[in-house]
Design a protein around this nucleic acid. Sequence first.
DNA 1: TGACAAGGCTAAGACTATTAGCCACACTGG
DNA 2: CCAGTGTGGCTAATAGTCTTAGCCTTGTCA
Lengths: 186, 186
Amino acid sequence: MPRAGLDPDRVVRAAADLVDDVGHDQLTLAAVAAHFDVAVPSLYKHVGGIDDLHGRLAVLAVEELGARLAAAAGGPHAGDEPFRTLARAYRAYAVEHPGRYAATVRAPGPDDVALRAASDAVLSTVLAVLGDLGLTGDDAVDAARAVRSALHGFVTLEAAGGFGLPRDVDRSFTSLVDTLHRGLLA
Amino acid sequence: MPRAGLDPDRVVRAAADLVDDVGHDQLTLAAVAAHFDVAVPSLYKHVGGIDDLHGRLAVLAVEELGARLAAAAGGPHAGDEPFRTLARAYRAYAVEHPGRYAATVRAPGPDDVALRAASDAVLSTVLAVLGDLGLTGDDAVDAARAVRSALHGFVTLEAAGGFGLPRDVDRSFTSLVDTLHRGLLA
DNA sequence: TGACAAGGCTAAGACTATTAGCCACACTGG
DNA sequence: CCAGTGTGGCTAATAGTCTTAGCCTTGTCA
């Protein structure tokens, strides 16, 4: 009975890779266990169950997304505004990691401090970019919600194949970001 | 062994009421069967299984949503623009029927003619409203995607409890609609 | 009235998650 | 260097999910 060398982090990372492959709703303990060539109940030594695994996955994904957004907002903008750079980074993460991205949509429980902290980091990056656009206070909160709604809606519908018409999706995204940008500045 | 008087429509409507109560991802054949006081396999005489039921539920929900939007776009606007009236109707449906609304996010399969028709009806209502704003052709398609993305993102995040800050959600929604409206007109 | 299709049922199999309890490995302290 | 102990695997068992197969009654229609 050799040890497989599991720990919570390895389990969560395996789950993240799995959901990117097969879809967020297809995450099963059986698939994760198979990946490590281990029996399913063994995973319970490292995570609390499927719900706990989903929760840890959400933290991982929101942290990764936050890091990508912070890098995009802080780094060089390739001749473009921070706002557009941020939006592109958001969509890029969702396209590269559809399963992880889907995991980010999860309300933090009352005592889920890790997820709440990761979400706050994302929010503060967005608010910083909006602040450079001159938005503060309640206006900035409204704007952050608008930006997150629009970006989230777009990438979700894109992932679900909800854009039926032949019109190029990249151009529609650019149009969305421009529309938002104009609306926020006016 | 008395007949329960089931038919596909009654099964789907029961499923719709159920998901509005317990959440879209909690739809089970067991719960639907229990509602009719019937054994689970009996449902297979009326629907093809859980996947088929999800598909039929999507059609029902998109049709209902389309009817609500068409009524809002065509009816009296209470002194407001059709665009805002449409947006409010969209959110109202999602708030009143969270489970049904979640079911609407489903890419129509290649031969899913019913869902495709229902989706087209929604799209044409949106395009009609955008046409009155002077948007046509590719611009209108981009605008329709932007509008659907923003509305879908907002109501999804609202339903998921993703708006942590205390700022009033109704006001944020109004702000989102105004921002979009300004951006589309500019 | 009799035949037949439709619509219920039970039984069974393959999945899923979860808990309980066992046992060997690997590390640590004396 | 060896004993003790805790960690991390395991098997077994339970409960829930969907699904198929096949039976049998009900209700309708010729």
